[in-house]
Simulated assay, not measured.
Amino acid sequence: MSGEPVSNVGLLYSAAALIINGLVLLGVVSGRAAAPFNLLVGSMQVIFPTVALIQAAGDTDAILSASSVYLFGFTYLYVGLNALTGASGEGLGWFSLFVTTCAVVFSLLEFLSGGFVYAVLWLFWGALWFLFFLMLAIQTKGIDRFSGWFTLLLGIFTVGVPGFLELAGGFPDTPLTGSIALGVGLILLLVSWVLGRAKRPDDAAHPAAA
């Protein structure tokens, strides 16, 4: 699943989509404004893996890599269509639970095949999708800003950076780099939680009633 050209190009555009969607959750960008890019990236990440599947000729590694890209592609398409149509997010939330489960399986497959970094990254991506499940399907309150920061930071450091390094051919996948990825991910989780709990200026201007 790691190291495939389709996956690597997809990582770069996934990074941009995650950053923009993080800004949507933080209230910086509107959902409708982000919808066209979600639809473009989602379409790309459905078309490219489909072409890869056609050309796979039974190569199980290529098929598995393409199948993982679909998870991102369908998510972005779902987000974009929901924003344009004004549909509620429950369906996307339950789909996110399905993707969370798939992410855990992909993480295990990566680990068993010696892919230490991507085993870690899939766990954090699964955690992000689980947050979407909590927000949209379960309607958990008070985690929007935490989820927004986590989406934005994961987009930069666990999707964008690996994508560039993979394309540049300088992304060693070893137990050491896997440990570094785990440490970075935990730091991003903590930073996102702290930033998500921090009060905004408008909170001070409009204090809650006693």
Results as ranks from 00 to 15, higher is better:
6 V>T: 10
7 S>L: 13
8 N>D: 15
11 L>D: 05
15 A>F: 12
19 I>Y: 03
19 I>H: 00
21 N>H: 08
22 G>Q: 04
22 G>R: 00
23 L>Q: 04
24 V>R: 11
28 V>R: 06
33 A>Q: 01
34 A>Y: 01
35 A>C: 08
35 A>R: 06
35 A>L: 09
37 F>E: 05
37 F>G: 09
38 N>A: 02
40 L>E: 00
40 L>N: 07
40 L>Q: 00
41 V>T: 11
42 G>R: 05
42 G>E: 08
42 G>P: 12
43 S>I: 02
44 M>G: 14
44 M>V: 07
48 F>K: 14
49 P>G: 04
49 P>W: 11
50 T>A: 15
51 V>G: 01
51 V>I: 15
52 A>C: 00
52 A>I: 01
55 Q>F: 12
56 A>D: 01
58 G>M: 07
59 D>Q: 04
59 D>V: 07
62 A>G: 06
62 A>C: 07
62 A>N: 12
63 I>A: 13
65 S>N: 04
65 S>T: 07
67 S>W: 14
67 S>K: 01
69 V>G: 11
72 F>C: 09
72 F>G: 03
74 F>P: 08
74 F>W: 11
74 F>H: 01
75 T>P: 07
76 Y>I: 05
77 L>E: 03
77 L>A: 05
77 L>H: 03
78 Y>F: 13
78 Y>A: 10
79 V>Y: 11
79 V>M: 14
81 L>D: 02
85 T>C: 04
87 A>L: 08
88 S>N: 15
89 G>P: 02
89 G>H: 13
91 G>M: 07
92 L>F: 08
92 L>N: 02
93 G>S: 02
95 F>K: 09
96 S>D: 00
97 L>W: 12
101 T>L: 14
104 V>F: 14
105 V>F: 13
107 S>K: 14
109 L>C: 07
109 L>I: 11
115 G>H: 09
116 F>E: 10
116 F>P: 00
119 A>R: 00
119 A>C: 10
123 L>A: 12
123 L>E: 13
123 L>Y: 00
125 W>L: 12
125 W>V: 10
126 G>F: 01
128 L>S: 03
131 L>G: 10
131 L>H: 12
133 F>K: 03
134 L>Q: 12
134 L>R: 15
135 M>S: 12
136 L>F: 13
141 K>D: 13
142 G>H: 14
142 G>A: 15
144 D>F: 06
147 S>M: 14
148 G>D: 13
148 G>T: 08
150 F>W: 12
150 F>C: 06
152 L>Q: 06
156 I>R: 05
156 I>H: 05
157 F>Q: 03
157 F>G: 10
158 T>P: 03
159 V>R: 14
160 G>Y: 11
161 V>W: 04
161 V>E: 08
162 P>Y: 03
163 G>H: 08
165 L>Y: 05
166 E>R: 10
167 L>I: 10
168 A>M: 11
169 G>T: 08
171 F>D: 00
171 F>T: 10
175 P>D: 09
178 G>S: 01
182 L>Q: 11
182 L>C: 09
183 G>I: 09
184 V>L: 13
186 L>E: 00
188 L>G: 08
191 V>W: 04
191 V>K: 07
197 R>E: 15
200 R>W: 06
201 P>M: 04
201 P>I: 09
203 D>E: 15
209 A>E: 15
